[in-house]
């Protein structure tokens, strides 16, 4: 799948649930990053009685809700990898056991370093994108979901579902304060991924030989030329 495309016909790559998930997930990540940053560095309301305000409560509520969206979305996306088309599995399984895959990664690196003049065509993710998305997004958001719900479980209390499922993470990371710090650092990990991801997607829309951003909107991979 990560190998260069063999067809010159448009291909339906991203089915509707995948596209919907992608954009909902993107929104959730932005909301999570903004509210998460504010939880570490809260804005301040002054004056009046405490009962007149609930600003920080709302920020935390939005953060927790978006966290649920991220987690449930990822579960749904994993389910779709089982029942969807062949490209829906790529997100979770970079084909790292194939030599041609690594050759493809190398070719993409050369392409981004301006060392090859023409990019290859790919129906699904290109091999480098596949690797980056797996390492940064899949593992990164899994880490955030696990640590996030572990911290959430501290608020829900001992014996709550979040504490039972994920409570073990907190001593592993060296206690609650350290777990907060790692969760915070994980936010930056995902922010950096999003920066590069958005830049590359827009860039490839223009300079590659295939559709990029529009594919995640209408689902179709189209080609700009007829050469293989």
């Amino acid at each position: 799948m990560s190998s260069p495309a063999m067809t010159q016909e448009p291909v339906y790559v991203y089915e509707k649930p995948v596209r919907l998930w992608h954009w909902v997930n993107a929104l959730a990540l932005v909301v999570l990053a903004v509210t998460g940053y504010l939880i570490g560095n809260p804005p301040v309301v002054t004056g009046g009685e405490a009962s007149d305000h609930y600003l920080f409560g709302y920020i935390r509520f939005i953060h927790f809700s978006a966290g649920y969206v991220l987690a449930i979305g990822l579960i749904g996306r994993a389910y779709w990898a089982l029942v969807g088309n062949r490209y829906s599995r790529q997100l979770f399984m970079p084909e790292v056991y194939r030599l041609t895959y690594w050759k493809g990664v190398w070719h993409e690196i050369l392409w981004y370093l301006f060392l090859v003049s023409e990019p290859r065509k790919h129906v699904g993710h290109n091999p480098l994108a596949d690797l980056a998305i797996f390492l940064f997004f899949v593992l990164g958001s899994l880490f955030m979901i696990v640590t996030g719900f572990a911290l959430y479980g501290q608020g829900l209390g001992e014996g709550s579902w979040a504490d039972r499922l994920f409570g073990w993470v907190i001593p592993l990371l060296g206690g609650s304060q350290s777990a907060h710090s790692w969760h915070h650092l994980g936010m930056w990990y995902l922010v950096i991924f999003m920066m590069v991801h958005i830049y590359i997607a827009i860039r490839e829309q223009y300079v590659s030989r295939q559709s990029m951003v529009s594919t995640m909107i209408d689902g179709w991979r189209t080609w700009k030329d007829d050469r293989p």
């Binding site: 570490g40 915070h184 650092l185 930056w188 922010v191 950096i192 920066m195 590069v196």
Partner: peptide
């Protein structure tokens, strides 16, 4: 701290 590390890295990537 996480914000300093994150901001510096994100700045460099930017």
């Amino acid at each position: 701290n996480a914000d300093k590390m994150g901001l510096v890295t994100a700045g460099a990537v930017g």
